[in-house]
Design a protein around this nucleic acid. Structure first.
Lengths: 209, 209
DNA sequence: CTGATTAATGACACGTATGTCATTTATTTT
DNA sequence: AAAATAAATGACATACGTGTCATTAATCAG
C-alpha cells in the first residue's frame, strides 16, 4: 500500500470538485435519500465536517452539482446547432440523439429525478433550473421548428407548437429508465427511433400534389 | 362547538380509509418529505401510533394509497374504450383528454412523483405499478394503434410503434406542473391540443392520390 | 528549528422520524 | 352496573441527519 492517500491531507484547491463529484456519484447510485453528507464524505475520503468548510449548506451542494452538470449539456447542444448547415430534419434527429445520450444514457437524469422529488423543498433550485436550463432548451427546439417551417420542411402549424412536446418522450424515457430499470428494461435505441419517426411525420409538410 | 368530534372515538371500520385519505392529501400538499406519520395522524385527527394498528409500516400506507388511486383510473379508461364505437381518431382524443384530467388536473401525478422520488427504496411498489398499472395502460394504447391501422385511419407503421410515445407528453405535463407550477404555469389545455395534433398527424394514413 | 496559520477532525447539541409497549379509556358483553 | 375487550394513546427507545465548535495536526514563514 505504498500509494495510499495520506490521512488529513490538505487540499484546499481540489476539495470542492472532489466533493461535488462524490455527491454526483452518490446521487446517481443511492438516490436523494442516500445522498447525505456522511455518505458524500465517506466516498470522497474525507470527514463529514470538512464539507462545511467549502459549502455552507446541503442545498449549496445540490445547486452546485446541478449547475455543473447542466452547463456542459447546454453548451454542447448550442455548438451542434450553430455548426450545422444541412436539412432541418437531420438536425432534429441529431439533437434528439444528443438529448437521449445525455439524459438517458448519461447521468443528467439524476438531476431531473432530484427536481421531481425534492423540488418542492428547494424553490431556488427549481427557479434556477427553469430559467437557466429549460428555457434555453425550449428556445433551441423553438428555433428548430421555425427553421423547419421557413425552409418548407415542416408544416406551418409547427410554428405555433409548444416545443416541449418534441422532447417529452426523451424525458419519459429517462424517468422510465431511472424508475423501472430493475423491473423491465427500456430498449432506448428502439424507443428513440419511434420518437423521431412519429415526431418527424407529425411535423413534416405533406408532399404537394 | 357542539359538532366537535369526540376524542378517542373508536372507529375501527372507518379508520383505514380516513388514514389513506389523509396520507393522500398530505402527499399532494406537502410532498413526500412532509408525508410523515405525525402529519398524517394530525390531519386525520388521531394519534400517531393509532396508524400502527392498521398499517404495519409506512410502506404499507404508500402502497395502499397507490393501489386505491390507480384502480379508479384504469377502470374508467377501460369503460370508455369498450363503450366507444366511433372513429379511432376521436377515441384517441377522448382517451388522451381523460389522461390529462386524471394525471395533470387530478392528483394522480402525486403517485408518479413518489415513484420517481422514492422508487429506488421500494422495489415492490415499483413492480406493482409496472405490472398492474403501466402494462395495462400500454395495452390500451396498443389496442388503439392496432384498431387505427385496421380501419385504415393510421399508417401501417403505427402497429410497430411503442405506445408509450403517445402518452409521453401527458406525463411530461404532469411532472412539469408538479415541479414548475410556482415558477411558470403550464397552459394545459393548449399543451394538450398540441399533443393531440402532432400525434394524430404523425399517425394518420396520408391521403391517397 | 520554532512558531504561526488554518485545513481537518471528532465530540457535542439539537431536531426529527420510526416503531414498541404499558397504560388509559371507550365500547361491548353479561 | 360490573367486568371484559380492544381501540386509542403517551412515554420510551432507537436511529439518523444537520450544523457548531473546540481541538488536533499538516503546512508554511521566519
Amino acid at each position: 500500500m505504498s500509494d495510499r492517500v495520506k490521512r488529513n491531507e490538505r487540499r484546499k484547491a481540489e476539495r470542492p470538485e472532489e466533493i461535488l463529484e462524490a455527491a454526483r456519484q452518490e446521487l446517481a447510485e443511492n438516490g436523494i435519500a442516500g445522498c447525505t453528507f456522511a455518505n458524500i464524505a465517506a466516498r470522497a475520503g474525507i470527514s463529514r465536517t470538512t464539507i462545511y468548510l467549502y459549502f455552507k449548506t446541503k442545498q449549496d451542494v445540490f445547486e452546485a452539482v446541478a449547475r455543473n452538470m447542466v452547463e456542459q449539456t447546454i453548451d454542447a447542444a448550442d455548438a451542434v446547432i450553430d455548426a450545422y448547415e444541412g436539412p432541418v430534419e437531420l438536425l432534429f434527429e441529431r439533437i434528439v440523439e444528443m438529448l437521449y445520450q445525455r439524459l438517458v444514457e448519461g447521468y443528467a437524469a439524476v438531476i431531473l429525478k432530484a427536481l421531481v422529488a425534492e423540488g418542492q423543498d428547494h424553490p431556488e433550485i427549481v427557479r434556477f433550473y427553469h430559467d437557466e436550463i429549460l428555457s434555453k432548451g425550449s428556445a433551441v427546439f423553438k428555433k428548430l421548428l421555425d427553421l423547419g417551417v421557413e425552409r418548407g420542411e415542416f408544416a406551418p402549424f409547427a410554428r405555433e407548437l409548444d416545443p416541449r412536446i418534441l422532447v417529452s418522450p426523451a424525458i419519459f424515457a429517462a424517468l422510465w429508465t431511472l424508475v423501472f430499470q430493475p423491473v423491465s428494461k427500456l430498449d432506448v435505441a428502439s424507443f428513440r427511433r419511434d420518437h423521431i419517426q412519429v415526431m418527424m411525420k407529425g411535423l413534416k409538410q405533406p408532399p404537394e400534389n
